[in-house]
């Protein structure tokens, strides 16, 4: 009798481990547009690996920082390649994360099986953008220096928690060597830990709550081997694409940060271009307030959806219109900023 209990216990543990990996995934995931969550994850792994490699050479102190990035880019064997991969993977991660986001939004996939997936997802999106900002600050060229100055002052303009947050981030009232060290710590320690926790949470939420329901697709297939193989194929494709992108667009570095002169062009990377253009054309306080308001709507959207659905609005159509308008405005501002 005792041995029997032991056997079942052992078996169930083994089964549990298998069950952790072996899930049924819905058939609609065969469509690339429905499985773009794995893409940013693959890219994150590349960014993490190359990022860890670069910490072996990077020195988080003004001037030294610029020199060490310069050394990584032009002196250290394959340094340009590692830095290039880091940059390309982050850029592509933000891009594919946006695609994933737009798809979930337009198909209202946040609706089925709870809002937790969406909430964690939005936090993941903001943390990734924070990684982008802290990352390009570390290069310590003109864009880095004036970028951090401007962003810290933007944080300071926020109501209530803005000033203490800005003070804490800067390590004082002005941007100094402490600021660079803090951004370095955020970029290489705190934010990655947060990002990994959020990614874990996002995946656990999907496994526990289940995949979104898509109308007209009832079939299921196994995660392993069918789906895992497809993800592997995507990963190989991404690696080839990334390597080519790094070869074609090797990483560059601007002029060294000069605290007593602003360069004529301090435009941020493309994913912040739209926000940059927005704060340039709109009056300061309303512009920042609009950004906060938009972020709040974005995070709480599943609840807004439910509220409006209960009052008889056709949210399917509204989401398509909203999604299109948001993408159009973002693209327009980005192109406007790049061209003019």
């Amino acid at each position: 009798m005792e041995t029997l209990i032991e056997q079942t216990a052992e078996k169930s543990l083994k089964d549990k481990i298998i069950d952790l990996i072996q899930k049924e995934v819905p058939d609609y995931m065969n469509n690339f547009f429905y499985c773009m969550g794995a893409t940013p994850l693959i890219l994150f792994l590349v960014a993490a690996a190359t990022g860890i490699l670069m910490t072996f050479y990077y020195i988080p102190y003004p001037e030294k920082a610029y020199e060490s990035v310069m050394a990584i880019t032009s002196e250290i064997y394959l340094g340009w390649f590692i830095r290039g991969l880091h940059k390309v993977s982050i850029t592509m991660m933000i891009f594919t994360l946006s695609l994933h986001l737009v798809r979930v939004f337009v198909t209202r996939a946040y609706k089925t099986h709870g809002e937790l997936k969406w909430l964690i997802g939005t936090m993941l999106f903001f943390t990734t953008l924070a990684m982008g900002f802290t990352g390009y600050s570390l290069v310590y060229d003109q864009v880095s220096y004036w970028g951090m100055t401007v962003v810290m002052n933007m944080a300071e303009e926020m109501p209530l928690f803005g000033p203490p947050l800005a003070y804490l981030l800067r390590g004082g009232a002005e941007v100094s060597e402490l600021t660079l060290l803090r951004l370095y710590d955020l970029h290489t320690k705190l934010l990655p830990v947060l990002l990994i926790l959020l990614i874990g949470g996002h995946i656990i939420a999907i496994t526990v709550l289940g995949f979104a329901k898509v109308e007209g697709s009832e079939g299921k297939h196994l995660f392993y081997p069918e789906h895992a193989m497809k993800v592997g194929l995507v990963a190989i494709g991404l690696l080839i694409l990334m390597i080519n992108l790094v070869m074609i667009f090797p990483p560059t570095i601007g002029q060294m940060a000069n605290p007593s002169e602003v360069a004529s062009n301090v435009a941020p990377p493309w994913y912040f271009s739209a926000v940059y253009k927005w704060i340039t054309i709109a009056p300061r306080q309303p512009a920042l307030f609009a950004l906060l308001f938009f972020s709040a709507i974005f995070v709480l959207y599943p609840y807004i959806d439910r509220f409006l659905t209960e009052r008889g609005f056709n949210m399917g159509r509204i989401n398509i219109v909203l999604g299109t308008v948001a993408v159009a405005i973002f693209s327009m501002l980005t192109i406007w900023n790049v061209l003019f």
């Binding site: 100055t149 401007v150 002052n153 007593s260 602003v262 704060i279 300061r284």
Partner: peptide
Amino acid sequence: TDLGCLVS
């Protein structure tokens, strides 16, 4: 006085 860059 906007966001702390330097004027010339």
